[in-house]
Amino acid sequence: MSSQTPDPAKPDLTAPPALRRGWTTGACATAATRAALMALWGEGFPERVRITLPRGERPEFALSYTAQGAGWAEAGIIKDAGDDPDVTHGAEIRARVCASGGGVQFRAGAGVGTVTKAGLPIGVGEPAINPVPREMMCAQVTEMAARLGQVPDVEITVSIPQGAEIALKTWNPRLGIKGGLSVLGTTGVVRPFSCAAWIASIHRGVDVARAGGQTHVAGCTGATSERVVQALHGLPDHAMLDMGDFAGGLVKYLRKHPVARLTIGGGIGKMAKLAQGALDLHSRRSQVDFARLAARVGVAGVAQANTALEAVQMAPDVADLVALDALATVRALLRDTEIALDIVVIDRAGAILARAQ
């Protein structure tokens, strides 16, 4: 059989469309800061503003909002998160600049949160503007002040209209960030459907729990398992880690930053995947091995089950074996740490099917 070399001049109609990347809130705040400084220091507001990101990319942003008064200027940019399902996509990120008493100072405007718990990269009482966005904005002040002969003493107030409402859909309330969103980003770029942001949130959740003296934390795959585990152990909100599908991301971080006790909770399907050694529990990246379940429980018909819950209905011992095997998977990943571990397996309604510890 002969094969043909694809014609590079013709589009491959079978290939999935490329996902469009976007820009972080930190990149938008930096671009807004630059535009506002241009107006404050006599250049006027541009229609579009270009910045350099930490890895050298030079995106250009259109201004969505401008305002100016005696001794201050403000610019806004609509965040474009590309094809990433980011709750802040479409939000307007504004930066207001004015002279300060010395150096660059940051303020939280409406819709930007304030840190109230230790364990985050920013100190308690500070506006929730992360270190890299701060560095990016400071770099704009330094560069433009030198070019325009200005003193680089600037107060930057970042605000996000409707940010307080949007923040309720994020981890911020649980992490102790009150009043709004965080200004985030380490590269300035949002890569579509990246796992990195979620895993970073898990890590920050562990940091906040540890800094607050919490010795027992729980990672759960969803809202139902979280509700069950929290009630079962009487845990406070800041002990509950939104693990989602990223069991490996949570457990590997705890191996280096341990607590006294860890509970992993989830539905029978995801726990079955953890039991067979999968550390990413998403349906596109791991599947339940029903033949393995059948062999473990000694019931051949389980191999024909369509779901893990159906397997439990065929052979109730499946749930207990899943809990024990999931315990073994996590225990092996924790290696020689002294973290006490327990597993809670539930059904869709939230009933506990099995526990192992």
Score class of each variant (00 low, 15 high):
residue 194 S to K: 05
residue 265 G to W: 01
residue 212 G to M: 14
residue 163 G to T: 03
residue 174 R to I: 10
residue 144 M to C: 11
residue 143 E to F: 11
residue 188 G to F: 03
residue 164 A to H: 07
residue 239 A to P: 09
residue 243 M to A: 10
residue 267 G to I: 09
residue 165 E to M: 15
residue 237 D to K: 14
residue 186 T to W: 03
residue 234 G to H: 12
residue 142 T to W: 13
residue 259 V to R: 01
residue 265 G to E: 06
residue 224 T to S: 00
residue 247 A to V: 05
residue 278 A to N: 12
residue 156 I to D: 00
residue 200 A to I: 08
residue 184 L to N: 09
residue 142 T to E: 15
residue 264 I to V: 15
residue 145 A to Q: 14
residue 155 E to W: 03
residue 215 T to R: 15
residue 201 S to Y: 08
residue 206 V to C: 04
residue 238 H to R: 10
residue 199 I to C: 06
residue 269 G to A: 14
residue 247 A to R: 09
residue 265 G to Q: 03
residue 255 R to N: 10
residue 261 R to S: 10
residue 175 L to Y: 00
residue 246 F to C: 08
residue 259 V to M: 03
residue 222 G to R: 07
residue 251 V to Q: 05
residue 182 S to D: 02
residue 220 C to E: 07
residue 155 E to T: 10
residue 193 F to T: 04
residue 240 M to G: 03
residue 153 D to V: 04
residue 280 D to G: 06
residue 183 V to D: 00
residue 143 E to H: 14
residue 264 I to D: 07
residue 232 L to W: 12
residue 269 G to F: 09
residue 246 F to H: 14
residue 139 A to D: 14
residue 221 T to I: 11
residue 158 V to E: 01
residue 159 S to Q: 00
residue 152 P to G: 06
residue 201 S to N: 07
residue 229 V to K: 01
residue 157 T to A: 10
residue 151 V to S: 11
residue 217 V to H: 04
residue 201 S to V: 09
residue 227 R to M: 12
residue 137 M to H: 11
residue 265 G to S: 04
residue 240 M to I: 13
residue 146 A to T: 10
residue 278 A to H: 13
residue 172 N to Y: 05
residue 234 G to C: 03
residue 176 G to N: 02
residue 154 V to A: 04
residue 161 P to S: 04
residue 226 E to M: 13
residue 224 T to W: 00
residue 147 R to F: 05
residue 160 I to K: 02
residue 158 V to C: 09
residue 278 A to W: 08
residue 221 T to Y: 05
residue 164 A to L: 04
residue 175 L to P: 00
residue 276 Q to S: 14
residue 197 A to V: 06
residue 139 A to W: 08
residue 262 L to V: 02
residue 221 T to K: 07
residue 215 T to C: 13
residue 272 A to R: 01
residue 203 H to V: 11
residue 205 G to F: 02
residue 208 V to I: 11
residue 140 Q to A: 13
residue 161 P to K: 03
residue 268 I to T: 00
residue 140 Q to R: 10
residue 277 G to I: 02
residue 147 R to Q: 15
residue 150 Q to P: 04
residue 278 A to E: 09
residue 268 I to Y: 01
residue 273 K to L: 13
residue 246 F to N: 11
residue 156 I to G: 02
residue 193 F to K: 06
residue 221 T to G: 07
residue 141 V to Y: 02
residue 164 A to E: 15
residue 140 Q to L: 12
residue 155 E to I: 00
residue 248 G to Y: 11
residue 170 T to R: 02
residue 267 G to W: 07
residue 150 Q to N: 06
residue 150 Q to V: 07
residue 265 G to N: 04
residue 232 L to C: 04
residue 159 S to H: 04
residue 176 G to R: 01
residue 138 C to T: 15
residue 185 G to L: 08
residue 160 I to T: 05
residue 205 G to E: 01
residue 166 I to L: 12
residue 208 V to H: 06
residue 179 G to E: 01
residue 198 W to Y: 14
residue 165 E to T: 15
residue 225 S to E: 00
residue 264 I to T: 12
residue 173 P to A: 00
residue 214 Q to I: 15
residue 174 R to N: 05
residue 217 V to S: 06
residue 216 H to F: 12
residue 183 V to P: 06
residue 173 P to T: 00
residue 249 G to S: 03
residue 167 A to E: 07
residue 152 P to L: 02
residue 184 L to K: 12
